[in-house]
Structures are given as C-alpha cells and as structure tokens.
C-alpha cells in the first residue's frame, strides 16, 4: 500500500487517491506535425527510476498535486503543487 502525502490533507492511504500519469508534459503548438503530435499523445517517459507524476486526492480534498516516486522501490522523494517546476533530484540508474 502506498502512503501519499496530500499537500493539503496530510498522509493518507493509496485508496483515497487516483493516479493521473506523467507530469510536465508540454502540449505542442497547433502547427505541429503528426510525428510531434503522436509523440505528445502516446509516447511516455516510463522510467525505471524516478517518475514525476500526477495524483488526485479523489476521496479527500479533490485536488491534484505532483509526486516524484521511484518506480522500483516506490519510495516517494518529493511532493509538490501543480505548476511548480520539477524538483532537481539525482537520476537513479537501475
């Protein structure tokens, strides 16, 4: 069971949250070609190591926030608000 710290409500069980996938994805401009658009739409970082991701406190305050989580150990390295820049964490190499 993951234990996530909602920035507004504190630490709760994974069951209260829903997952929103990768953070910091930039939407390409409207004149982008098919390759850029499909890269934006479908391709994922999917790292083995630290993943920057969205979570929603669905059965709590109902607000979105960002989490930096290790995808191998599930260790949570940072929790930060939407719109904040990516924290500068050392790259894990597995």
């Amino acid at each position: 069971m993951l234990r996530l710290s909602c920035p507004w409500c504190g630490t709760r069980d994974e069951l209260e949250f829903s997952y929103g996938g990768e953070s910091h994805v930039t939407r390409p401009t409207l004149d982008s070609d098919d390759a850029q658009w499909s890269d934006y739409l479908f391709n994922k970082e999917n790292p083995k190591g630290i993943h920057y991701e969205h979570w929603l406190h669905k059965y709590g305050c109902g607000r979105w926030f960002n989490v930096a989580r290790d995808t191998v150990t599930h260790e949570i390295h940072a929790v930060y608000e939407m719109g904040e820049p990516k924290p500068d964490l050392a790259v894990k190499d597995y």
Partner: peptide, 13 residues
Amino acid sequence: DVYNSYAQRGGIP
C-alpha cells in the same frame, strides 16, 4: 496496480 512500476511485486489494494 494503477501506477507505473518496475517493482515486480503487487500492492495490497
């Protein structure tokens, strides 16, 4: 399990 993971173990929920 709903989130990205390479852990090779499953969550309790």
